[in-house]
Nucleic acid binder design. Structure first.
Length: 900
RNA sequence: GGACAAUUAGCUCAGCUGGUUAGAGCGUUGCGUUCACAUCGCAAAGGUCGCUGGUUCGAGUCCAGCAUUGUCCACCA
């Protein structure tokens, strides 16, 4: 043993912060500083966490996966850039600050005024941003902080303005009066995707409506009705179509027009619907198709307007209760039924959405664009995935993406909140009343304010996803033609939760294909939701939240990373528990101790970069296994099968290296170079997954260099199979390490040795022979004697035998435990310790098991159809299997004889 | 209403284009401190692969239907 002093366990907290500082100080997070010629760039644009947020386990997954990819690519010689940032998350942030303000001073944002309120938000965000940045560091994320961006940065604001103006000039942005999703609490519009649905038990009111009886869930909207619609082919109501009818109501009679429209389902209810164009999306469309006026009765506070007589000022809910009572008095209610339906609520605050008419800015997704070859934004974005320019992982999300885009309506991008990018539009003149389609405004749309007096900027801000949609290129300097933009865009790998497919991913594709004439990323990988160990969502009320920072402190960032990656598949939710993290902490410690042993047992610690020559069977075996591991792990990482890659490296580390090879190394001295080579290769393979522990060990090699920039291990590869996958981008051919016949033989032979050792250990355990007690053994075989003879020292050492004899023919040793493995008969003469009855039973059971299997194989091989139709190789394999087991059966029966 | 997942050992999950007696981790049981590691070692027990059909020489794997759970989309007044 050398005098190296290495602690017995890896205490993560003693290393993590110092290592991260060292990495950051090295400058290698910045691709410009990476050593060597690196012709190819590899870029990941980090999904910016909300500036107000704290790191949660969802971020942790994202950071773990992306860091694996970027560290792998960096070691593989790419000019690797992982660009971090934060998102201003307009509505979420404003809502949060409003809440804090209310708690602190009881004031609203209106009390403060726009400017002061925004100053509050800025102060809050500045603080939160630094919090989440430090938390990101705790995960070990190797992102380039020198390029960090914020969606409200000056540069990004320029990008937003530029994008808006270009779209406006191309006729893709227009201002229009529409029924919009309105959140009365946020006082803002919401896009369709920002609306959530909650099932509620409500009432369905059947009301008498002039000559009709019809059903409605919202009787209060009757005050805004301007027409009634029936299906064009509905014979029952033909006579009314086109007529104007006077309908009795709680505020007296009012006039409606009867129209025929195909959206009405004649089978449902009475086949008649009342139409409230101002407060329902479908109704708005009906009214538009038939040139019917709309009548707004609900205002921006969600209250009934002054045109509602005695109901003016009531909330819609209060009004509903009151109006039902009043209608019952007038005999206008036919019946009331229970009714389950979905209530639209704001995704941020849960307030019931009120559809109201409003003049807003929209992005047209269906207008043909010249620069897109006459295609619309929608069509271009569809093509990006259909043509394979963007590959979605897992590909089942393709369908979801197509469906969403195909049904996409124009995107309402203006918001009436204060925090965000202000709409780059200026007005001069009086702003028109909301219900008026004609605007007398003089409008100026531009990236810089117009010259001249009296211009007033639009008070609305843009949907936060409008700026997020530009993220992959606005962060690289667009609209300026920067070097970064040229080098790093399109990015290579986007990774986020599938809940962001519509909100963000699709919009990035829309924006980038239009503004950059290129996709924003070549691949997009969706991770699943992290749930608790019982598969429930993590939530405050369930008290089942796992805080990444807590578990990093307790188990180390490496263990947390492994627990979030191994055992997960893209797009599927995963369950996480502290027990799982604890398990990986144990593994990290195992890796530490493997290293500790190797570093302490070698004479000289040195770099061994070339594969050393094997001297023994075990050497040949482990080196062949390692080559195979490099090939498989590399291929799996390239294909983003992180879990599979990790599992394979894990298995090699623990089940092959630690359990077998290191034990052999204790018996066969002179393996320093091989041990060091394996260790160094393994540290490289693990580094993307567990950067801290691997870097900490690497430092003990004393090279003075960082592991994070070491070259990825190489191997001689053979291609297996061909690229025959259906995937649009084409999956690469499967790759294996090139193995020689000698390698394959070594693996087979060593596996035989392993089975012999396991069999002897099994015999000992079954007979309760203390592990410490030395035994002798006799192994009999005619065919493969040489293997055993050459490996007697290894077998004896691992099986704790003090004497191992190899004989050609069965000497029928009496008083022995026995087993048959790989054609060998194994006898452990234990004499007086032998429980003949127990041993007989054990062997009989074994024999019975094999007999069943032999019968099964015999039956199979007698089946003419199997012989005729199965591939030759399979038949041969089955025949060999049969012979093998028949022989084994004979040997076991012989052993049974010897017990008599 | 439509779509998509999932359903394999007590728990959490692997099992690729169908072909060894279906695997791992955790947990359980027995034994154990051999100088890398008790955050460890050795060994063991534990599964009619949700159900029903079908294709096939052969199905956990492919097809159809069903059931259960979950998610997304749409939403009819």
């Amino acid at each position: 043993m050398s005098k190296l002093d290495i602690p017995k366990s890896f205490e993560s907290k003693d290393y993590e912060d110092a290592l991260y500082k060292q990495w950051e100080a090295s400058g290698f997070f910045n691709p410009d500083n990476l050593p060597g010629r690196r012709p190819n760039a590899y870029t990941i644009s980090m999904p910016p966490p909300n500036a107000t947020g704290v790191l949660h386990v969802g971020h942790a997954v994202m950071l773990a996966i992306q860091d694996i990819v970027i560290r792998f690519q960096r070691m593989a010689g790419k000019r690797a850039l992982w660009l971090p940032g934060t998102d201003h998350a307009a509505i979420a942030t404003q809502t949060k600050v409003e809440k804090l303000l209310k708690e602190r001073s009881g004031k609203t944002r209106q009390d403060l005024g726009r400017e002061k309120f925004l100053a509050e938000v800025d102060a809050f965000v500045a603080q939160s941003r630094s919090t989440i940045k430090n938390q990101t560091r705790k995960m070990g994320s190797s992102c380039d902080w020198s390029r960090e961006r914020f969606t409200l940065d000056q540069g990004l604001n320029e990008a937003v303005n530029e994008a808006f103006v270009r779209m406006y000039r191309d006729g893709l942005i227009y201002r229009g009066l529409r029924v919009v999703n309105w959140c009365p609490r946020c006082h803002s519009t919401l896009s369709d995707d920002e609306v959530e649905y909650r099932p509620v038990r409500a009432k369905l009111y059947w009301i008498k409506y002039g000559p009709f009886v019809l059903a409605t869930a919202r009787p209060e909207t009757k005050l805004g009705d301007t027409c009634v619609a029936v299906h064009p082919s509905d014979q029952r109501y033909q006579q009314f179509v086109g007529q104007k009818l006077m309908i009795p109501g709680v505020l007296g009679e009012f006039e409606v027009t009867v129209v025929a429209d195909a959206v009405v389902d004649p089978e449902f209810g009475s086949g008649v619907i009342k139409v409230t164009p101002a407060h329902d999306f479908t109704d708005f469309e009906i009214a538009r198709r038939h040139g019917i006026n709309l009548k707004q009765v609900i205002d921006e506070d969600g209250r009934m307007m002054s045109n509602c007589g005695t109901y003016a000022g009531l909330t819609t809910r209060q009004c509903r209760e009151r109006i039902v009572i009043d209608m019952e008095k007038l005999g206008l209610i036919e019946k009331i039924e229970d009714y389950d339906h979905n209530l639209s609520v704001c995704y941020r605050c849960g307030t019931t959405i009120e559809p109201i008419p409003s003049k807003q800015w929209f992005v047209s997704v269906s207008t043909p664009v010249k620069s897109l070859g006459g295609r619309s934004l929608k069509e271009r974005a569809l093509a990006a995935v259909k043509d394979g320019e963007v590959k979605i992982i897992p590909d089942r999300f393709n369908k979801v993406y197509f469906h969403w885009l195909e049904n996409l309506r124009d995107w309402c991008v203006s918001r009436q909140i204060w925090y965000g990018h202000r709409v780059p539009v200026w007005y001069r003149g009086g702003q028109s009343p909301i219900a008026n389609r004609q605007s007398p405004d003089e409008i100026y749309v531009g990236t810089t304010p117009p010259k001249g007096e009296g211009w007033r900027q639009d008070s609305d801000t843009l949907d936060t996803w409008f700026s997020s949609g530009l993220w992959t290129f606005s962060t690289l300097g667009w609209p300026k033609a920067t070097k970064d933009l040229k080098t790093f865009h399109p990015t290579d790998f986007m990774e986020t939760g599938y809940d962001l497919l519509f909100f963000w991913v699709a919009r990035m594709i829309i924006m980038s294909t239009y503004l950059m004439k290129a996709v924003p990323f070549r691949q997009v990988y969706f991770h699943g939701l992290v749930r608790d160990e019982q598969g429930r969502k993590m939530s405050k009320s369930l008290e089942n939240i796992i805080d990444p920072l807590d578990v990093i402190a307790a188990y180390g960032a490496d263990a947390v990373r492994l627990s979030l990656v191994i055992g997960t598949t893209p797009g599927n939710d995963t369950n996480l528990s502290e027990a799982k993290i604890g398990g990986f902490r144990n593994f990290v410690n195992k890796l530490w101790n493997i290293s500790r042993y190797i570093l302490m047992s070698v004479d000289t610690v040195a770099l061994v970069e070339k594969k050393p020559k094997a001297k023994t069977l075990a050497d040949r075996w482990i080196l062949a296994e390692l080559d195979e591991l490099i090939a498989v792990a590399t291929e799996q990482l390239e294909q983003h099968n992180f879990s599979a890659a990790g599992e394979r490296i894990y298995e090699f580390t623990w089940s092959k290296l630690a359990d077998w090879y290191l034990e052999v190394a204790k018996l066969e001295p002179g393996k320093d170079d091989i041990l060091l080579y394996i260790l160094q290769t393994l540290l490289k393979l693990w580094h993307p997954f567990t950067p801290f522990v691997t870097e900490a060990i690497w430092r003990r090699l004393g090279t003075g260099e960082l592991l994070m920039i070491q070259p990825w291990p190489t191997y001689v590869k053979t291609s297996v199979g061909s690229p025959r996958y259906a995937g649009v981008a084409g999956k690469p051919a499967s790759v294996k390490a090139q193995t020689t016949a000698a390698d394959r033989k070594a693996v087979a032979e060593f596996e035989l040795v392993q089975s012999v050792v396991s069999a002897i250990r099994n015999l000992r355990a079954e007979s309760n022979i203390a592990p410490g007690q030395k035994l002798s053994a006799i192994i009999i075989d005619g065919k493969n004697q040489k293997i055993i003879t050459r490996q007697t020292a290894v077998i004896a050492g691992l099986a704790r035998l003090n004497d191992l004899r190899v004989a050609k023919t069965s000497a029928k040793p009496t008083g022995s435990l026995s087993a048959v493995v790989g054609g060998f008969e194994i006898y452990l003469p234990v004499a007086e310790l032998l429980d003949v009855k127990k041993e007989t039973t054990r062997l009989q059971q074994e024999a019975a098991r094999i007999e069943t299997f032999v019968n099964h194989l015999e039956a199979k091989l007698k089946n003419q159809r199997f012989l005729d139709r199965a591939p030759k190789a399979i038949v041969v394999a089955e025949q060999e299997k049969l012979v093998l087991h028949q022989e084994k059966l004979v040997l076991i029966k012989r052993q049974l004889e010897s017990l008599k």
